[in-house]
């Protein structure tokens, strides 16, 4: 017998609470990745210093 939240043959179906938690975690992961991108951008800019302007135009 399947549990109430489990459909036949279509895997586990999330309850509303589980869906909300998953969405919260997804948002946190998205923020963390965006923060990491920004961090590496800032590190690159500060490491390069004025050399960042030294490029062929």
């Amino acid at each position: 017998m399947n549990s109430p939240a489990e459909g036949k043959g279509d895997g586990i179906r999330l309850t509303e609470e589980e869906k909300a938690r998953q969405a919260k975690r997804n948002r946190a992961i998205a923020l963390a990745i965006a923060g990491l991108c920004l961090l590496f951008y800032v590190i690159t800019v500060f490491k390069m210093g004025s050399a960042i302007l030294n490029r062929p135009l």
Binding site: E18, R21, R25
Partner: peptide, 9 residues
């Protein structure tokens, strides 16, 4: 369900 579904915030 316990193995695959995370309950974490």
């Amino acid at each position: 369900r316990e193995t695959l579904i995370s309950n974490a915030d």
